[in-house]
Amino acid sequence: MQAYLDLIRYKVYAELSAEAARTFLGILWWLIEPVLYMSVFYLIFGVMFQRGGEGFVYFLLVALVVWKWFDSSIRNGMVSLETNAAVIQQVYQPKFIFPVIVVLINTAKFLFVMLLFLLFLLISGKQPSISWLALLPLIGVQFVLIAGITSLCATVIPFVPDLKWVVDNGLTMLFFLSGVFFDISALPEHFQGWLRLNPMAVLIEGYRSALLLGQMPDWGQVFWVLLFACILIVVAVGVFTRYDRIYPKLV
């Protein structure tokens, strides 16, 4: 067990440092890439469509930062067994470590960007309030959610590779429905319920409440997200255990 923990830790460190070493600007890209990404949305929705009011930048950025973490983890994690096919066929390791490594790598990058975002908020004059502490449980719940979805996708995709495209489009659709660039509470009542079935929509509203409005998130809803995420993890662990030594034949 210790060897596997060492392996995960080393692999995460090695991948992160390799990414940093590979490009000219290195780790600066972990900041620049989200900034570029966000500028596009701000330009289109904030400036061109005049959708936002005051504070639209923060409204948008908060959601984009947490969404990117969710999206990248799942996209890279779901194919992690395929990506590591060579080593899977050469030596035995429990397969779950592969999506776990992807999630941890993306989490490290997210924490870096989130830290910078908080600094940005402070510099822009936002007062930190007690509600900022809600960040910790929110990030914790999102981590479990991401781990659950990523692992589950990773267990299934070697059997049905076509699902890659289903997940791909599913994520795109979910992105549009998560209230990244609109406010769910501004929509008609009957839509709100449906949209809040999406765990990311709940979390994004939570982050916005905590960081921008100085209010605590709706803990009841967050709890349901956590429960859902835990169920996913249990299922994923079950599938990995059952098919652990079958995957080498498939990848």
Partner: peptide
Amino acid sequence: IPHLTGRQNAILGGLF
């Protein structure tokens, strides 16, 4: 892993 060094891959290999 192609972009990691021989040393890093040796450590990885041992861990694997």
